[in-house]
Design a protein around this nucleic acid. Structure first.
Length: 443
RNA sequence: GCGGGUGUAGCUCAGCUGGUUAGAGCGUUCCCCUGUCACGGGAAAGGCCGUGGGUUCGAGUCCCAUCACUCGCGCCA
């Protein structure tokens, strides 16, 4: 008999079916034994009635996480046993036969309680089976789909950036060195930046997604050493505000798609609907600093950047006063931004750059880029970089690249903030951090 | 790298100012249970109280060191 998915059982009322899945919960009452079964599509209760002696015999040993093939009849539940708020709460499976596909040891943690982060990650292949974790990564999947969907509609082309690179693209971030063939040094990429810029000369509008690597000894709840970056880059922009419009539209589309396609996941985390206006409110860094000084008395007007505390404050402010959970801060000083960032001729010393802050944390960094060959070489030199090392990249500029700009977005941070969870590692399937690659490095 | 917090049963935690044999809930094992749905009831097993040293008649508790995890800062997405 063909397998029926649990979510479809309601359509088979009165019929005999076969389901395949895991035991979620067992409730043994002696003559009556109840199980909750789980498959990729949902959960359902099964019951073994007293006359099913054969099934009773098999069920004696069956425990949570055992993998079963269950033959049964789909029955409407008696009125008083209906669980209106549950999936399949109006039906149950009367179990006629059980075939054990795999037995299982008992889980080393409780499947519904709050777990400490190290427990959560020590048993990652198993904790991912929990409702909570499934909800996180189903929502993350919706975010990815919505990101692609929006940019596809805007005429972007997706491409795959290489992860093995010949030199450090930006000079700043820590970079993992690897040994390439014949002992040549190579590196894991920290960003697809240079490649997506080159690709604007091919497709004009491009995006790419995937892992990027940062060799920094972070010990925070918002950093990973391997993260998933969503990047896009677009040609023929007038300035950075065109990029700001595009990222606003993208994030708004993601927020709306989540509310539509990840309703249950959002409900599980009890998060308020995200306020995502069509164009996110924005202000210059110095304006933000003045605002903070005026409203809180804290003087950071001489700082070249915002502290995490300031970012949290600005997000609170945008939430309360600007009807937005997102706020864009523009015009970071030239000294704080990478060489490919365009200076603003109308605001010397500052750049056509921006960060998008979301619920207290930076999730996006973007700018208009330098597209003129000579200017780019000058910028490299002023940052102490050797243009010789970038000749491959510079080739694209020497032979004509359109004015362009783009962004980089951290998928895990975005997921974390949309769901209101505490640590970015919880929004990462298999996080790599300062002391863990699957198992603890200290062990 | 710097600063804070934590480390007690498989998991999540309690253990007050030091004082008999270290506790709870969940989980596990066994028994009972015909309508449960985080089922319920009964019983049991399970701990070098992170590690080393010290103070004390006596240390899970106080002190020092060390290790681990975790949070914050730096840097960034």
């Amino acid at each position: 008999m063909e397998r029926t998915y649990i979510k479809d059982l309601g359509k088979s009322e009165g019929q005999e079916v076969v389901i395949k899945g895991w035991v979620d919960v067992r409730r043994d009452q002696g003559k009556l034994v109840f199980f909750d079964f789980r498959d990729m599509s949902g959960k359902v209760q099964g019951v073994i009635l007293p006359n099913q002696t054969e099934a009773h015999e098999v069920a004696k040993d069956v425990r949570p996480e055992w993998v079963l093939e269950v033959r049964g009849k789909v029955n409407k539940r008696p009125e008083k046993n209906v669980q209106a708020d549950k999936q399949n709460g109006d039906i149950e499976l009367e179990i006629l036969g059980i075939k054990v596909l795999a037995s299982a040891k008992e889980l080393p943690f409780s499947s519904d309680a709050d777990l400490n982060l190290d427990t959560l990650l020590d048993y990652r292949p198993l904790t991912l089976r929990r409702d909570r974790e499934q909800n996180i990564f189903r929502a993350q999947n919706v975010i990815m789909q919505a990101y692609r969907e929006y940019l596809d509609r805007q005429g972007f082309t997706e491409f795959q950036a290489p992860r093995i690179v010949g030199d450090d693209a930006e000079g700043g971030a820590g970079i993992f060195k690897i040994e390439y063939l014949y002992g040549h040094p190579a590196y894991l990429s920290t960003s697809p930046q240079l490649y997506k810029q080159m690709m604007t000369g091919v497709f004009e509008r491009v995006y790419t997604t995937g892992p990027q690597f940062r060799a920094e000894k972070h010990a925070t709840s918002r950093h990973l050493n391997e993260l998933t970056m969503l990047d896009f880059e677009m040609a023929f922009v007038n300035d950075h505000t065109d990029v700001m419009k595009m990222i606003s539209g993208t994030l708004r589309h993601i927020a709306l798609t989540l509310q539509e396609k990840a309703k249950n996941e959002l409900a599980y985390f009890k998060v308020e609907a995200t306020m995502a206006p069509e164009i996110f409110p924005s202000m210059k860094l110095r304006e933000a600093q003045e605002l903070i000084k005026k409203e809180t008395g804290k003087d950071c007007t001489n700082e070249p950047d915002l502290e995490p505390e300031d970012e949290r404050w600005l997000c609170e402010y945008a939430n309360k006063n600007l009807n937005s959970d997102f706020i864009i801060i523009t015009h970071y000083p030239t000294s704080k931004r990478p060489f490919y960032t365009m200076d603003d001729p109308e605001d010397p010393g500052f750049t056509k750059s921006f960060d998008v802050l979301f619920r207290g944390v930076e999730i996006v960094s973007g700018s208009q880029r330098v597209h003129e060959y000579e200017m780019l070489i000058e910028k490299m030199k002023s940052k102490g970089l050797d243009p010789e090392k970038f000749s491959f990249y510079l080739m694209a500029f020497k032979y004509g690249l359109a004015p362009h700009g783009g962004i980089g977005l951290g998928l895990e941070r975005l997921t974390e903030k949309f769901l209101g969870i505490e640590n970015v590692k919880e929004a990462t399937l298999f996080p790599r951090d300062i002391n863990r690659i699957d198992s603890l490095l200290s062990k």
